[in-house]
């Protein structure tokens, strides 16, 4: 039903986390159109279709971005800020997934307009459950913003 080239953008530098996230998503058949970027810069290139992703101009934005905070080069919060302060992208739902329990990160994230903030639980069972619920919600349940929401 979706015409998005990519439904879910996963921004995560840790390969273990990438693997575990994909494992969980796959297990629940939610990993159809997933793209993984490994740092903040790459994430922004993808979102704003520049650099290596310049060819993506014709394609719509992902249904949801799963964003880690601790990223090389450009931090997760900086990525969040860039996405949420640009009228072309600010309608894209962004879900922060982080190991950090730092309150100030949470505060900052909400100030910048994050749509959801999740702490990665250490227990893998819980992790799997969260990934499943999250994917289900944002990719299936949630009505994604219509194209009009993305002003050029």
């Amino acid at each position: 039903m979706s015409n998005n080239e990519v439904e879910l953008l996963l921004v995560e530098d840790d390969p273990n986390d990438v693997e575990l996230a994909l494992l969980a998503l796959r297990k629940h058949k939610l990993a159809n159109k997933i793209h993984v970027v490994r740092d903040g810069e790459e994430a922004l290139d993808f979102v704003f279709a520049r650099g290596a992703y310049a060819h993506r101009t014709k394609n719509g934005p992902p249904k949801v971005i799963l964003l880690d905070l601790k990223l090389p080069k450009v931090s997760g919060l900086e990525v969040l800020k860039a996405v949420k302060s640009d009228p072309r992208t600010q309608a894209v739902p962004v879900v922060v997934m982080t190991s950090s329990r730092e309150q100030r990160d949470m505060v900052e994230g909400y100030w910048l307009g994050v749509n959801s903030y999740i702490q990665k639980p250490i227990d893998f069972n819980q992790f799997q459950t969260i990934i499943r619920d999250l994917g289900y919600y944002w990719l299936v349940v949630n009505q994604s913003p219509p194209p009009e929401a993305f002003r050029a």
Binding site: S99, S100, P121, F124
Partner: peptide, 11 residues
């Protein structure tokens, strides 16, 4: 500690 120490534990 919060971020880096917890990640390997999770893994």
């Amino acid at each position: 500690v919060a971020h880096d120490l917890r990640a390997p534990l999770r893994h």
